[in-house]
């Protein structure tokens, strides 16, 4: 087995109005290649923050985070951006599409960044995969929430990332749209063979993962981890 993500005593604390807040208190965790990992836990337990650390979207204030053998803590902002461009796809709860770009342009953006000459053709293929080829020239504001999340999914998988990070991707969707998105997420992961780390509140969704890690107060709740193992 190859470890693609390795966290050793990862810590995150932020300075808030009420003083310093410890968000993650020493997380040690390995994620294997091809694995599907579910991060669960109550609100405020640090799930999304952990995912952000894994994606280099947030800098750890302590410990070490390695992705594909590279130490993310040693990289500056631009090196992290390059790393994500080449190896990671991220899906957010609020979709985060660029409002000034059409669906097709949104999907093509990471491919363009990676220097793919056929960025738009590939983006179109991804939109076909998520069933939105007829919405290619629509702006985000012209799409429903479910459609926006499908565009975001297409955008995340388009560059064939090694690691797919999804932060409550169904959190802003109704049940029907939510389950459709999850089917699509797992289908795309299976098709491209990426490692998937998923933050979710849904037990049903967690059950579809190879492994589940529960967080509580910024730490891994070992009782459940052992139970699942």
């Amino acid at each position: 087995m190859t470890t693609v993500l390795s966290l050793k005593d990862a810590r995150l604390s932020l300075d808030g109005n009420a003083g310093r807040i410890e968000i993650l208190r020493g997380i040690t965790l390995d994620v294997q290649k091809g694995e599907t990992l579910g991060l669960v836990g109550p609100s405020g337990s640090g799930k999304s923050s952990l995912l952000m650390l894994m994606g280099g979207l947030e800098a750890a204030t302590g410990g070490q985070i390695q992705a594909l053998g590279q130490n993310l803590s040693d990289m500056n902002e631009d090196a992290l951006a390059h790393f994500r461009r080449d190896h990671m796809g991220v899906v957010f709860q609020s979709f985060h599409l660029i409002p000034t770009m059409t669906a097709l342009e949104n999907v093509a953006t990471p491919l363009e960044l990676a220097g793919h000459k056929d960025a738009f053709d590939r983006a179109m293929t991804e939109l076909v995969n998520v069933g939105l080829e007829d919405r290619a020239n629509h702006f985000p504001s012209q799409l429903s929430g479910g459609e926006q999340q499908r565009v975001a999914l297409a955008r995340a998988v388009a560059p064939r990332p090694d690691i797919l990070l999804a932060d409550e991707p169904t959190g802003n969707l109704d049940q029907t749209n939510g389950s459709h998105i999850m089917d699509l997420l797992f289908e795309l992961r299976d098709r491209h063979g990426a490692t998937l780390v998923l933050v979710t509140h849904s037990n049903e969704l967690a059950a579809r993962c190879d492994r589940v890690v529960r967080l509580r107060d910024g730490q891994i709740d070992t009782t459940l981890a052992e139970a699942v193992a």
Binding site: L57, E77, D78, H82, F83, R84, V90, I98, T109, A114
Partner: peptide, 9 residues
């Protein structure tokens, strides 16, 4: 968003 997608500053 662009940084998330891999764009440099």
């Amino acid at each position: 968003i662009l940084k998330t997608l891999g764009a440099t500053r």
